[in-house]
Amino acid sequence: MAEWWSYRPEDMLLFSPRVYWRMFELHNAAVWPLHLLTVTAGLGAVLLALGRAHGTARWVAFILAILWVFVGWSFLWLRYSTINWAIDYLAPLFLLQAGLLVIAGILPHALVFDRRHGVAGWNGLAMAITALFLYPLLALAFNWRQAEVFGIAPDPTAIGTLGLLLMTRGAFRLVLLPIPALWCLVSGLTLWTMEEPTAWLPIAAVIVTLATYMLPTGRKS
């Protein structure tokens, strides 16, 4: 595909909003009741992060790794890529992210919980709650069958991951942030091109993550 510059964002939108949202409806119906499991896993990860017990951050990494493989394979690869060929290039990044999370879980001290209740922790918690609860609630306002659920759909999974990572510290965190942030940007741009009111959510998640990371205390490990 030569001459990428000759395409505008609208040209990249290969599908209609109707097809996009029906995709979530079909996917939800196909994988139900896994939603209960993935949301419980997400809640467990948040509770571990809040407990901040020594050595438990690795379990958060392992939980997230499983969810990234599942979302990348079942949603991106098998479903989303049928209407958007660009996903062929993004789905492997979900697998890569899962691999990085596993490495972060195995390496000693790669990822540890922040012992202080800093701004980063609160921002992270807010993002995790957005991913776990706000997303399904938003769907109630539109069409609950088309809900985007943490661990099932990519946006809440990426936002929740960014949130949980903000609650940790450790040098490895820097390696784990780019892929979820990139996904949020791509998805935010897609939703914005479709003129969807929720487009700002993934974009805001990236801005909050960047801002938090830039904070004087944000980077310290």
């Binding site: 290969l14 599908f15 097809v19 479903r79």
Partner: peptide, 13 residues
């Protein structure tokens, strides 16, 4: 068929 026929594997569409 640009956009209008890109319906993935949605059997109804």
């Amino acid at each position: 068929s640009w956009i209008t026929f890109n319906v993935g594997n949605d059997p109804v569409l």
